[in-house]
Nucleic acid binder design. Structure first.
Lengths: 317, 317
DNA sequence: CCTATTTATGTAAGTACTTACATAATACTT
DNA sequence: AAGTATTATGTAAGTACTTACATAAATAGG
């Protein structure tokens, strides 16, 4: 156990797991030696059903923080042992109502003195070592409820990525990433057309050679966003291939990238930016509008080469 | 979760389990989203092998508080993934030495920044809610190391039994228990003989009708010990069928029962107690000697009806 | 009112453990 | 030195979960 202690907070999970397993194991042994056909993991279940008189599967799962199949399986075992009775809810035929049978109630009564001993012992242990442990655990639970470990880690990772990200112009080595990101995005919202495949498979000839520009948002050598400014005329460019990698969405990166695109367009001496979007892409359209783009009704002369997008937007620089 | 909180210390195990599972689940999700082929439960393993350079299966199991088959299984998985290398220990051919492969070391290096984030986040969570949780857990671990939950519960149960126990004279309703206890005891040390079976199956005719007495140690309606005083002559009785139920051994009940037997023998006007024991029964022989019985060398005229016991002891009252 | 979505449950298959057993190598004992 | 006990590992089978899927009933939204 010494090693795990050395790891400190990094091994918090393992230590907590070990602790709970040791408690469970000990209880299993107690029941076994007392020749009682009962398992520790049924305890909370039993208490819950005892208290609520009648309760459904999902309610149990929710209260005990378990998956419903786990609950169903325990129910089936306990029903076979005739410790509980289940029946359909007449008011809602999907629901299965669970209650203790007489045998179950009797067992609970029999076990009451033992459970009292367990409680005494647990209190004793806590008093000896950490009287407020339960309180501390409550606080951790509350903190995690507010924001989970996952969310916190995710935020930190994304923050790190954002801190280190920068824009760069397209190079050949980014072809795969550029392609992948744009295909992923298109696939999840719309359908890939001939035109898309052609442009994405050869952006150099299709965009850059035609006096367009491609920019990439990069962090830690990974491409996390792309956009292109394709030349329509000397004064007008079209913003396209505007996408952010899935896991980085929701972090306002789109906003930053769009602003950067506008600056780039100015640098390139364009006087206006146009773009084509699709009613399905609500978030994107909202972003464009928020940043100053305006919808121009009716299809204008900018040809929609994919025959797909139906919203035409424009920003005068 | 509200219900589990209501249960307080009784549901300590469940709450701790939920907490650790939530941590593990979140970590699984993080690795998956980062597209890293790594599982949270490997973490302590990896750290350990990384630190110790070379380590055996059992050592790992001990350090990580796991069963050795669990460790073997993880090793097999990681070896298949070429993250570790194992080889036989030349100095001790039973041992399998485990170390990280280059690929494994590389993975550890790659994961280091992520693990740092995890540590930061965990510290953050603890600081927000329970800064000394780890310390508290250490204290609980220490307390349990000193005396486990199991031992504590057991002690309480036995104490309760002892508090309520009393001696009673044999009645027909105790036949089964009397038989069972003595057979169990004999079976675990020696072999049942014809004589034993005969006496145990009909103690009334075999002992009581022959002016002997049988006493039982009873608690909560359960027989936990037996002994008999069989008449050898008006002045001499033989102590036999002296046994304590397995789970109650080690609590000095034998001592109390033996003292009570001596008192009973006095009450019954005997002047000495004799008994036959066996060299195998070291604990019992020690107890008899401690209480005042003395070994009488050479086989005396008290016939050993079982042809088995070879130590003859005597106590003059 | 009808269809789409949500909710409640069940089932199947997979996984990470467990316990119980087996086997071989080493250490102890007389 | 030989037999016995202990230690180190492995394997097999069982169990308590999980995830992924399926289905039916209830509810919501046009």
């Amino acid at each position: 156990m010494e090693f795990i202690k050395e790891l400190g907070t990094l091994a918090l999970g393992s230590r907590i797991k070990n602790l709970s397993e040791s408690l469970m194991r000990d209880m299993t042994r107690v029941y076994k030696e007392q020749d009682i056909d009962f398992e520790p993991r049924w305890f909370t279940f039993f208490q819950l059903v005892l208290q609520k008189k009648e309760i459904t599967v999902t309610q149990i799962a929710r209260e005990l923080n378990q998956t419903h199949p786990a609950v169903v399986q325990v129910i089936n075992i306990l029903e076979k042992k005739k410790l509980i009775i289940t029946k359909k809810d007449k008011a809602d035929n999907r629901k299965r109502l669970v209650k203790l049978s007489n045998k179950g109630k009797q067992l609970a009564e029999e076990l009451a003195p033992l459970w009292e001993v367990v409680q005494t012992v647990t209190n004793e242990i806590l008093n000896e070592s950490a009287p407020d442990l339960l309180d501390k655990i409550s606080k951790v639970e509350k903190t995690l409820q507010h924001k989970s470990t996952y969310q916190r880690i995710k935020e930190k990772i994304i923050q790190r990525t954002i801190d280190e990200m920068e824009f760069t112009e397209y190079e050949k080595k980014y072809l795969k990433d550029f392609q992948q990101l744009n295909e992923d995005w298109l696939n999840s919202y719309l359908e890939l057309t001939e035109y898309d495949i052609k442009t994405l498979s050869d952006p150099y000839n299709e965009i850059i050679k035609k006096d367009g520009n491609i920019f990439l948002l990069i962090s830690e050598e990974k491409v996390i966003g792309t956009y292109a400014l394709q030349r329509v005329s000397t004064k007008v460019c079209e913003l396209s291939k505007f996408t952010i990698k899935k896991e980085f969405r929701g972090w306002k990166l789109g906003e930053r990238m769009l602003k950067q695109a506008i600056e780039k367009a100015k640098d390139l001496k364009y006087e206006s930016i146009v773009l084509l979007t699709h009613p399905k892409l609500k978030e994107a359209t909202k972003l464009y509008r928020k940043t100053g783009f305006e919808i121009i009704p009716g299809h204008p002369d900018l040809t929609d080469k994919t025959g797909r997008c139906s919203i035409y937007m424009q920003l005068v620089l």
